[in-house]
Amino acid sequence: MNLKHILGGLLVAGSLISLSAAANEKLSVAATPVPHAELLEHIKPALAKEGVDLTVKVFTDYVQPNQQVADKQLDANFFQHKPYLDTFNKEKGTKLVSVGLVHVEPFGAYSKKIKNVSEIKDGAVVAIPNDPSNGARSLLLLQKQGLIKLKDPANLLATARDVTENPKNLEFKELEAATLPRVLDDVDLALINTNYALEAGLNPTQDALFIEGADSPYANLVATTEDKAKSPAIEKLIKALQTDDVKKFIEEKYKGAIVPAF
């Protein structure tokens, strides 16, 4: 074979590689750092084999991930549960949809001042998230512990105004969810989303005074716009997140702090 043939072969091979790379679909997904971004980074190689180049955009709040997907700046997001998504859609007029459940982050109560629920004093200050769905989630968990009673014991959007019995006269302080770990020194009790607890170095299974069970209705999901819900790249993303490999990764890395929901 002469040099011309060799060079020709290399050019053809190079063109095929180039075409293959160009054929890979780009997929951008918003996520909060822990565990969502970590799970997405874990499945990147599997998605690449399926022809999807995944870019993970990390956010530390609960508003921008939805807004940027609704504005078509990003393709999907992975950080929230359905009660939060439903509330966001209603308040912002968006139409984002859930395309798959991945895991449950059992919601927990933390304190630096007490070691047991029985030590909660009269008039204790309790910090809860200020968004409707997670605020209600906090109240439902407090109700489960017998600390309060709600008008409707199953209302996933209950507020402090729905508390009908508060024997310990708990004082509720509503704060941005991301800031809750930072106020632990200033309050008696804080109800914290597991992703923010993990980021702050808290171990939900060891440090929480009490925590939700795996039967929680707050499974974390992947959300996108209606027009992208059935796109091949989104379907491949969900398939990659709902594998035995991911289940094993969750169980080994988070050791019960989050649990698979598929």
Rank of each mutant, 00 (worst) to 15 (best):
V246T: 04
N220S: 13
L202D: 03
I43P: 00
D131V: 09
E50Q: 13
L209C: 04
Y84W: 14
G14Q: 06
S18R: 08
A208Q: 00
L7D: 08
Q68R: 12
E165W: 01
V246A: 01
T60I: 14
V58L: 05
A31Y: 06
L11S: 14
E174P: 03
L47N: 02
H81E: 05
T224L: 04
L237Y: 01
K239Q: 07
K247I: 08
V125A: 05
K57Q: 07
K236Q: 01
I17Q: 11
V187D: 00
E235P: 05
R161I: 04
K90M: 11
L141H: 03
N193F: 13
K144H: 05
Y254R: 05
L156D: 14
K57N: 09
D75V: 11
D53R: 07
E50H: 02
A70V: 10
Q64F: 01
S138T: 04
A223Y: 00
K92Y: 06
P167I: 13
L16D: 06
E119C: 15
L175K: 10
A197K: 05
K92L: 06
L157H: 03
A261T: 04
L170F: 12
D186N: 10
E212C: 13
L54V: 02
T225R: 05
V246E: 00
H81A: 10
F79I: 11
V29F: 06
S138Q: 01
L241V: 09
L198T: 14
A223N: 00
D188P: 04
A31N: 04
P33V: 15
L39D: 08
S28D: 09
Q80C: 02
L19Y: 01
K253T: 15
G123C: 05
L170Y: 10
I128H: 03
K173S: 12
I238C: 10
H36D: 09
A31V: 06
Q206A: 15
S20R: 10
L170C: 14
Q145D: 02
L209H: 01
L139V: 12
K253E: 10
A200Q: 05
F78W: 00
P106W: 05
L142G: 07
P35M: 13
A154W: 02
A136K: 07
D131P: 03
P232C: 08
D207T: 15
K44E: 12
A208Y: 00
L209Q: 03
E235A: 11
P260M: 09
K92F: 07
R137A: 10
S138C: 02
T194D: 01
I238L: 12
T60Q: 14
K57D: 04
A178F: 07
V56S: 15
K253F: 07
T159H: 02
K95H: 14
D86W: 02
Q143M: 07
T243N: 03
V246W: 00
K121G: 08
E91R: 10
L96K: 01
A257Q: 02
E165C: 03
L198V: 15
K173P: 00
A197E: 07
V63M: 15
A257S: 15
I148N: 06
S98G: 11
